[in-house]
Design a protein around this nucleic acid. Structure first.
Lengths: 232, 232
DNA sequence: AAGTGGTCTAGACCACGTC
DNA sequence: ACGTGGTCTAGACCACTTT
């Protein structure tokens, strides 16, 4: 051990952070390997490993076997968005939750989703619904579900429980992608949300995958004034 | 070992996931402790620990000392937003990046930020700038920086490098919060973005902290049509 | 071929919060 | 008080990738 005695992987993490910030280890620099750092800090290699893995996960270090660990040149910061079940989001804010199924049918796959959903696409499940907070529309969602991936979905009727909650409970854990845009309210949006056409609304498109197969695509429209918050 | 031999913490994680999905371990259920699971799976406790910590981090399990590990009733899904340096976001899309400093001054803290920034607030750094993609305004940002936390910021002039990039390089790693809203373009927004007043724009407010002290607050306005994408 | 990170082990002690 | 997860250790083997 040549350096100060550091206890715990978090202390090691902070020391590494300090060296990155002070440009002791500038962007792009390859830092000492785990064994050397363990010797320097007077701890086991596993402890160093824990600290460095954590930093790699948050995007500040890049690690590759044999090639070593490098300080990322321009760290891409990540923020975490919590995606709660809509009902809880509303209830937690002290408002009364409501849900209304607007449309449910087995329909052929629309052309613009042909690339996304595999299979013949003749019997896709199409569900349109709205969520209400204190009687006002909070969120409108238009969802397509692939029965090829979740056969049971065709037997759920979604009148009492939203597709959102049903999928959380019944669909396998999966990966997904979301894109948000700010768009002008259409005439039908304006009716739904009791606003004027042209007002600004947040829209989101979520695609969910399981084993490289698209499970569901949902287009969501949020009420005027909606705030999308996340933590960095 | 009473169960099947599982190798690697990821296999254990998948087995645990399977039990959660099949409702073998229903929401709210307290699962066996690490030692018992290690015995069942025929591995060391540390391996079980790795698997369960990973699941806890992704929000599916809740772990407390002495109280054990429980399946979270309604797992809150998380999505990750990448926050790249604006310049790279633009250059990576093949467009020419531009930056223009619109305003830079030491000013007294505005009243609406009095709660956020501590100290006397007489000498806050106020920086307004825009980022351009192929000559068109891509992002407008209005930023306040607390000199109490980053004294060096008052000596940076931000004409050549954006506050964004300067802070990435010079400010300590910190936590933050971001909120996005969809709002109508004001008259000055319309000039900036060559759109009409009332058009929908995405706005973001980012607050960054270091050791419970606010470092910077930035209000960003994105060009019409901006897509905010993230991965779940 | 060799050096790096990735992971596992068996045991140990500790911190914490519930009982 | 005590059972749980949190962490550390010292050593080992493995996987990967670069040389």
């Amino acid at each position: 051990m040549t350096g100060p005695q550091l206890n715990g992987w978090q202390e090691i993490q902070e020391e590494v952070l300090r060296r990155i910030r002070t440009l002791d280890w500038p962007p792009g620099h390859q830092i000492p390997n785990e064994s050397d750092l363990a010797a320097e800090f007077g701890c086991a290699r596993a402890t160093v490993n824990r600290a460095l893995q954590s930093l790699a996960e948050s995007g500040l270090l890049e690690r590759r076997r044999r090639a070593g660990t490098r300080v990322v040149a321009l760290p891409i910061r990540h923020a975490r968005l919590r995606i709660p079940v809509v009902r809880h989001e509303i209830e937690d804010s002290g408002r009364r939750y409501g849900y209304e199924l607007l449309h449910r049918a087995i329909e052929p796959r629309p052309h613009d989703l042909a690339d996304l959903f595999t299979g013949d696409g003749s019997g896709m499940l199409h569900v349109v619904a709205r969520h209400l907070a204190d009687g006002a529309t909070y969120l409108h969602e238009d969802r397509w579900i692939s029965p090829a991936v979740i056969p049971a979905a065709t037997r759920a009727d979604f009148t009492a429980i939203s597709a959102n909650e049903w999928l959380v409970a019944n669909a396998p854990i999966s990966t997904g992608e979301i894109a948000f845009t700010a768009e002008a309210a259409t005439v039908s949006d304006a009716e739904l949300f009791a606003c004027r056409p042209g007002d600004s609304l947040m829209r989101g498109v979520r695609t969910t995958w399981h084993n490289a197969q698209a499970v569901t695509l949902v287009r969501q429209t949020f009420h005027p004034g909606y705030r999308l918050t996340m933590q960095a």
